[in-house]
């Protein structure tokens, strides 16, 4: 990987990487940082911030700070697993589609069309209604949501290589399809794959929060930012911090991931704002 270190020194890039790093640290060490058990009912109903409970308590008297910290852990874990699955499977399928072409390509592309034509939230709600809200289902869902976009991007990237000399040369040497995909094409799509991963991560964090907010994501009592916003929105007028704090956590992570993705793309010489940002 050729990294241009100067692309990483822009203020936005530094801010993004710092935000992501802070969130990662908080998420990884939340069990040790968090002052209370996130599900234990330790305080009064909706205690305001300050005092024993730094960021107050929620409607059931649980420490809000602890829930926020554990919420990040959950959000990052679910989205990371789901996006890794989507990017891995999508990359292999995308390269295979580009290399084999023909019916495999047609079928995969039409499936992507179908998925991309289906409104994201509709797909999510159908899926959740059918399969529930457990961890495995959410990971699978995030995988499925981002899979088609990754296929398209990676396929496009792989297609530019199919006619390049080194691929033709490998073909003429009589290399197997697997060898060509793994040795020749895959290494040259990795830049795109990394950037895809970073961008999809930020999408996925937002999607997971949206889903939880709509009651389609993680289930109570799991601490989850989207869920916390949705639980707090009824009390918005009286206890605005119940919405404000999780919203700040969500947006800093998403902004961090976005800036980080852009910085990574810049460092790798790709254009994150043009070809590589897929919708949900």
């Amino acid at each position: 990987m050729r990294i241009d270190p100067f692309a990483l020194r822009k203020p936005a890039a530094l801010l993004g990487l710092a935000l992501v790093a802070i969130h990662l640290v908080l998420a990884l060490f939340s069990p040790w940082i968090a002052p209370f058990d996130p599900t234990e009912l330790v305080g009064g109903r909706v205690d305001p911030p300050g005092g024993e409970f730094l960021l107050g308590t929620d409607a059931l008297g649980r420490d809000y700070l602890s829930r926020l910290l554990h919420g990040g852990r959950m959000a990052l874990f679910v989205t990371f697993t789901g996006v890794v699955a989507a990017v891995t499977a999508g990359s292999l399928a995308g390269i295979a589609a580009a290399w084999f072409g023909g019916t495999l390509d047609d079928v995969l592309m039409r499936l992507c069309d179908v998925k991309l034509a289906l409104p994201g939230i509709l797909f999510v709600s159908l899926f959740i209604t059918g399969f529930g809200e457990s961890f495995g289902v959410l990971v699978t869902l995030i995988g499925l949501v981002y899979f088609p976009g990754v296929i398209r991007i990676v396929r496009a990237q792989a297609l530019t290589q199919v006619n390049l000399g080194y691929v033709k040369a490998a073909q003429l040497r009589g290399e197997s399809a697997f060898s060509i995909i793994a040795r020749e094409i895959l290494p040259n799509t990795l830049d795109v794959v990394y950037v895809e991963f970073a961008i999809r991560m930020s999408h996925a964090v937002l999607l997971l929060s949206t889903m939880s907010y709509l009651g389609l994501g993680l289930s109570p009592p799991t601490p989850d930012w989207g869920l916390m916003v949705s639980e707090g929105v009824g009390q918005l007028a009286f206890a605005p911090w119940l919405v404000l704090f999780p919203a700040v956590f969500i947006s800093t992570l998403v902004i961090g991931l976005n800036f980080g993705a852009e910085a990574l793309a810049g460092a790798l010489g790709l254009d994150a704002s043009r070809g590589h940002v897929g919708g949900t």
């Binding site: 234990e40 009912l41 709600s125 959740i128 209604t129 529930g132 809200e133 289930s219 109570p220 009592p221």
Partner: peptide, 17 residues
């Protein structure tokens, strides 16, 4: 679910649409 923990009962709960 929190209150039954005291009696050694673990009650996993999950919200459905």
């Amino acid at each position: 679910a929190q209150s039954v923990k005291e009696a050694g009962i673990t009650l996993p709960i999950e919200q459905r649409p």
